[in-house]
Write a protein that binds this DNA or RNA. Sequence first.
DNA 1: GTACGCTGGGAGAGCGCTCTCACACGTGAG
DNA 2: CTCACGTGTGAGAGCGCTCTCCCAGCGTAC
Lengths: 345, 345
Amino acid sequence: MPGASGTPPRTPTLEMVAAAAGVSRATVSRVVNGSTSVTPEILQAVNDAIALLDYVPNRMARSLASRRTDVIALIVPESTSTVFADPFFAPVVRGVARTLGETDYTLNLLIASESRPEKTRRYLLGGNVDGALVVSHHAEDHSYVGLGSALPIVFGGRPVNPDVSDSYYVDVDNRASARTATEYLVSIGRRRIATIAGRQDMPAGLDRLEGWRSALTDAGLEPGPVAYGAFTQASGAEAAEQLLAHADAGTPPPFDGLFVANDQMAAGAVQALQARGIRIPLDVAVVGYDDDTFASSLTPPLTTIHQPSADLGAGMADVLVRLIAGESPPRRTIIPTRLVLRGSA
Amino acid sequence: MPGASGTPPRTPTLEMVAAAAGVSRATVSRVVNGSTSVTPEILQAVNDAIALLDYVPNRMARSLASRRTDVIALIVPESTSTVFADPFFAPVVRGVARTLGETDYTLNLLIASESRPEKTRRYLLGGNVDGALVVSHHAEDHSYVGLGSALPIVFGGRPVNPDVSDSYYVDVDNRASARTATEYLVSIGRRRIATIAGRQDMPAGLDRLEGWRSALTDAGLEPGPVAYGAFTQASGAEAAEQLLAHADAGTPPPFDGLFVANDQMAAGAVQALQARGIRIPLDVAVVGYDDDTFASSLTPPLTTIHQPSADLGAGMADVLVRLIAGESPPRRTIIPTRLVLRGSA
DNA sequence: GTACGCTGGGAGAGCGCTCTCACACGTGAG
DNA sequence: CTCACGTGTGAGAGCGCTCTCCCAGCGTAC
């Protein structure tokens, strides 16, 4: 085999493309990176050579030379990944990954151990990524807020620290959505509207309660009783019992409308109410929040707020990419929700 | 400012550490990479310098020089990420990420667009990763099987192609688990045991049906009626109706035990049965599969097969890491499941 | 006809690290 | 005392790419 002097068939390099096209490395680099100042014929020749050799640029080499990594980290604090495993995490990640799939960025997923936060910090600050996305729900998770000045960071869900006015985040408007849900109950003629609120240590819990309250106040109605749950089905059932605690058996419930801060609790509450012989929506109209997969198959199907979690992920990715590109995206991006009318209200 | 001749405060490099410690780059590299042949004093000096400068090795440079990337790709075919969004995907990913978090590997998550599979192939073969994990459920997803010879790949869930005897995978034993569930029904005295099977185009659907059948045959019982669903709650309810189709209203159901191939379908089936006045577990004992989060809060709480999805992810990561290290892990790793006894059987 | 842009392409110096050598320095055997 | 050998360290050549010059060639204005 003349010419084949034992050279291993390694992946093609820029240099090889340059040789094949009869130009210099620099020119091939220009073509690959889309520089405009290349003569059409040369551009064609280079592209032919690239196709011929099935050339794929080496990310590592490119990063080393350009000081950009084309990597975006997606950080999920461990507690979030556990607590919110099912309903929330997956679609957000999917939205992020899909959006990034259309760019040249690569997604680095890391579950941040809360026991040794320095490990994650060092990784982020060690020049391994161009930016980071942080998905979290708890106040405690926000040890990353401080990194915002050293590295582009976008949060999913409003960070709860008070000093985060200068950080970027994408969120749904929990308050407005809760208002919408409550206003709907008002619009269908309900006048004594109770709520089962979620955990008050996260923005979602706080804001949804606040939205419910303001909707009623603005409508000139007295806010009905409030019970608190922990976003789980069991706690929803318990909260419903609490709301009924003062009512004697057999008497009608002390409320005719109920806004529940998430669907899991709503499912529990509906069961509890039905067990007491309360008809839904006839006696009590119930609106949930989240539009979990099971919401449509409850009896009756649950009227609820649909949260486009995948859009939230996509939005986060979008803001971060623009931030890295040196643009000035809005610090606060709100993803719209919508009320899904089903049978429960 | 003497000495500070405008040098930008960039992240410290190997070279700077070497200068600080009074040794050569090569020696620092040895220390960083844990070579044994370094004199204790020098080792100490280098480590001091590293600590002093807060040095973090640059991954890109390291990869370029060593031809290893320290990156593992986690590929989720788009259809899988959609269909299995909630119950399955998240914990597996978490298991993978957590395991990899204890190594030096970095996790690259990519949602593989099924419309342009070459993009993913090129990425994998372009020297960007050291190995790949593929999470999928459908036969069609396995366009990656062929890459196994070019790159270490570990599958989550048994690949369904016939020619994959040489690929690596981690899975639960669906067949044995279904057997266990069915044997339990037999052990509590049920004799006419039906099943609602899942989609027959994926191993989970096929194997669980097969396990049910073999358990009954081995117990000397006639397999009861079979209905098929699509792993959704609605399809479970429909399938239950089908099973009852031949029974007249008021007569006892034609079976006293029911194994359902996943919890979503089980939830639907239980509702449908109860709507017909059938008491669970009194008239029909029901066992599900998956132990979804909601399983324990159904009425009655669902007896089901618990799948340690996070362990599956961890197992995949573990096998891949060993494969990359040149070891010979088993081609087939089975993660044990367990039957969780609750109220429905 | 000369001077001056301007524009496309090439040369070459790195980016931060690894890794193969070669070298200096003991140590033990001949 | 010399020679072979082992052991720890340094020198230096890349890994594949980007990017800053720099130069050649052309068009335009005077």
